[in-house]
Design a protein around this nucleic acid. Sequence first.
DNA 1: GAATATATTTTCATCTCACGACATTTTTAC
DNA 2: GTAAAAATGTCGTGAGATGAAAATATATTC
Lengths: 192, 192
Amino acid sequence: MLSDTLTDELERYRIGPRIKALRLKKKMGLVQLGAHTGLSSAMLSKIERGQLFPTLPTLLRIALVFGVDLDHFFSKEGPRMAVTRKGQRLRLPVPAGGEIPAYSFESLDYPIADRRMDAYFAEFTGPANPSKPHQHGSAEFIYVLSGRLNVNVDGEEVSLEVGDAVYFDSNVPHSYCRGGIGNCSAIVVTTP
Amino acid sequence: MLSDTLTDELERYRIGPRIKALRLKKKMGLVQLGAHTGLSSAMLSKIERGQLFPTLPTLLRIALVFGVDLDHFFSKEGPRMAVTRKGQRLRLPVPAGGEIPAYSFESLDYPIADRRMDAYFAEFTGPANPSKPHQHGSAEFIYVLSGRLNVNVDGEEVSLEVGDAVYFDSNVPHSYCRGGIGNCSAIVVTTP
DNA sequence: GAATATATTTTCATCTCACGACATTTTTAC
DNA sequence: GTAAAAATGTCGTGAGATGAAAATATATTC
């Protein structure tokens, strides 16, 4: 017998329902999916209803048919919405110590507990010194609202203007630097 | 015996190495981890070296000890950067059929292959009709650039003005609707 | 409406393979 | 060098994943 607490926790991932959703989206039946995966429709039925948990090889077979990653089945949920008004953003503490901060952040999704993204409004001020290179999370997205922003990702430097956007893997070292003369503001979205 | 191709594909997730990394970060030994998880050190050793793949309950036990989500073991890697210039965005095809589209999308991260976010520049035009309710991905973030935008998440409706932002779970049905008189543009970021 | 086809769930038996106990080897400490 | 600890190898067991076939449910056709 499977431990109850583990079973419950696993079911919170709703692996089965997600498989079913993928299947229905492609308008497939269980037998049809069974044919594609080489698995019996009986077992697929049980998996979809959380009656048993597939082994990783089995789950991978299913994932391959739908062209999705395994992590498609493991992202946690937590229905919630958080509105952040322009004038009521939470200003985030400046990371560094005694230096004059080259930029400031305001959270755009602070109230979210189980977040899959972190969204910030960033304002780059002062002299055009690059921020300390840092790396975190898994991906980062930046959209320039005003001014000019230079972004350095793993040595590669690009200059962004208003309306430009950049997306990159934030596991590699990266840094920002205000370009041009005036201030620069941008939306920054990162994934944990 | 496990199918070779499946095994190879599974190993690309490097589940074992990730467990080992977590363990070493906490300066744990295999026996110690075994004590915490209730698993034998022998098996943990095999799992770390990809000699066998844990069942989901087993993997969950390990995850719980380290305080990580299951998807921590399934995220794929792929360092890359994609810059999208304001005038060179890829206009995305309008989903619906013959109707007048109420909004248009321009991708802000199109070149990224293995993306963890999808970023769009959206422009809401025409009459203030709500878009068809839809649900997808796992999370969504919207930042209003101009005009006024009404967002409906699972029945809950909010009106956003310039500079406002909203974050919500996009597994639940949601829809947009241009508010006010003029057009409305926004940044939309979603996670897959 | 019955009849046919199709899709899903249940039952039940099989058998793989995850898993642990213990032995062996390798590494670290001293 | 030896002793202790940590990691890996060997082997047997059984939980539970998986499939075959039957039973049930759902849809379709005449």
